[in-house]
């Protein structure tokens, strides 16, 4: 069951969305791209996976671990990064711990009043999130998802809901190329998907995102929503991208109230959805006969 490709065709945000919706368990490996000299189906340079850049572990669609290549990612490193241990303490603890699992080490550190249990949980969560936010800005790199690769048993796993990560990660995207590609047209509108209540359960949105959500309605274009909230194009794109990738809103054509007698064709005048009336199609009888014929093949 291969799930592989290149980040340039998907973006990490889309992949996280896929992991979330399909409730995946396994490890996503992201590699350096090594040019092969061949072309892919879209006529771009085909990239072979080179050195590993990062691995992200999922359990039942939740994020449980993320490490960049070259990082230790163990409890001592995590607490060091969170400022709970200084370098010297970290070194001493590492020397003494010698191969103890993170869980055993955590018990000892809590027992010795170095840190609290909450410190540990929060630090691990933050470490994972920082790593994922970083790789969400990557635009290139072969990836592969391996269902048989399980999380490192020695580590403490703190599951994180991906919807929040997707929304927050999108808000941090600096590169507005990704945003422009995904939301080229600000004259589109937003609507809620089916069962929005279900989807919004347990989601922590920024104030900015809530403001946008309060205007979601097929009659309001994204541009109008931005104006109403005093947001720049970049800001509104960030928020909408996050909401959309997390499956909280869909981008749709704006509903316009048609004035009687006004022409209905699209901008190009080429017909399309609002253009020509639908031709009277063939009858049900014709379709049934077609079905019988195809069945007999």
């Amino acid at each position: 069951m291969p799930l592989q490709g290149n980040l340039r065709d998907f973006t990490a945000t889309q992949l996280l969305n896929l992991m979330n919706l399909s409730r995946r368990t396994g490890t996503l490996f992201i590699h350096e791209g090594v040019p092969t000299g061949e072309k892919d189906a879209m006529d771009k340079e085909k990239m072979a996976p080179g050195e590993e850049r990062a691995r992200v572990v999922f359990k039942d669609g939740k994020l449980v671990q993320a490490t960049l290549a070259g990082q230790k990612g163990d409890l001592v490193a995590v607490l060091g990064k969170a400022g709970k241990l200084n370098d010297q303490q970290a070194r001493i603890i590492r020397e003494r711990a010698k191969g103890a699992s993170d869980k055993a080490l955590a018990m000892r550190l809590i027992g010795a009043n170095y840190v609290t249990q909450k410190d540990i949980v929060v630090s691990i969560q933050q470490y994972t999130l920082d790593t994922v936010y970083e790789l969400m800005s990557w635009r290139e790199g072969p990836f592969r998802f391996d269902e048989s690769a399980q999380p490192d048993k020695a580590r403490i796993l703190v599951p994180i809901d991906l919807e929040n990560v997707i929304v927050e990660g999108a808000r941090r995207i600096e590169n507005d190329e990704i945003l422009r590609d995904s939301i080229p047209n600000l004259d589109m509108a937003l609507k809620f998907p089916e069962n929005p209540k279900e989807k919004f359960k347990g989601i922590h949105l920024s104030v900015e995102a809530w403001r946008v959500v309060s205007y979601v309605n097929p009659k309001n274009t994204i541009r109008q929503i931005a104006k109403a909230n005093n947001m720049s194009e970049l800001e509104i794109r960030r928020v909408v991208y996050g909401l959309q990738q997390a499956g909280l809103v869909d981008i749709v054509k704006p509903l316009t109230e048609e004035k009687p007698g006004a022409p209905t064709g699209g901008k190009t005048g080429k017909g399309g959805k609002t253009g020509k009336p639908r031709q009277p199609g063939p009858s049900k009888d014709v379709v049934t006969r077609l079905i019988d014929r195809i069945k007999s093949i």
Partner: peptide
């Protein structure tokens, strides 16, 4: 859609 060519999904 060619299921084995994810680079074509967007297209």
């Amino acid at each position: 859609v060619d299921s084995a060519k994810p680079e074509t999904f967007r297209e």
